[in-house]
Amino acid sequence: MSKPLSDPREGRPGLSRRTLFAGASTVGALAAAATLIPRAQPTAVTPAEPRPAPEKGGGYSLSDHVKQYYKTTQI
């Protein structure tokens, strides 16, 4: 008896036709989606006017952001 002939592609990793077309279609879909996404326009940021320094020292102020943080830490 003779041994059956093995497939020459069996032992080596490579690209199959299915993998190649799947990758190409994925790249094409990503390129099409990238052209449809609008670009963000840079906005001019105006710096906030600094508050005057407190007379008695310190600098902590109970802002809305700090109040929101305290609400999230309550059990």
Score class of each variant (00 low, 15 high):
F21S: 12
A31H: 03
V27A: 10
S16E: 02
G14D: 03
T46M: 10
Y60D: 05
I37D: 05
V45H: 11
P8S: 00
A24I: 07
H65M: 11
K3D: 07
L36D: 08
R9L: 11
D7Y: 02
G28Y: 08
T73E: 11
S16Y: 01
M1P: 04
Y69E: 14
A33Q: 11
G59E: 01
G28K: 10
V45Q: 08
A22Y: 02
H65F: 12
V66W: 14
T43K: 15
A44F: 12
R18I: 03
F21V: 13
A33K: 09
R9M: 10
Y60A: 07
L62P: 02
S6P: 06
P4C: 02
A32Y: 09
Q68T: 11
P54T: 01
S2R: 06
T46G: 07
I75H: 06
E55F: 06
L30T: 08
S25I: 06
Q41P: 03
Q41K: 14
A24P: 01
Y60P: 02
R17I: 04
A53I: 12
A29H: 02
P47L: 03
R12Q: 08
Q41D: 09
D64Y: 07
P52C: 07
R39E: 05
V45D: 08
T72I: 07
L62R: 15
E49H: 10
L15K: 07
S2Q: 11
Q68M: 08
R18N: 03
R18K: 09
G59I: 01
D7F: 02
S61R: 15
S61A: 13
A40E: 12
I75C: 05
L36R: 11
A44P: 04
K56F: 14
S61K: 15
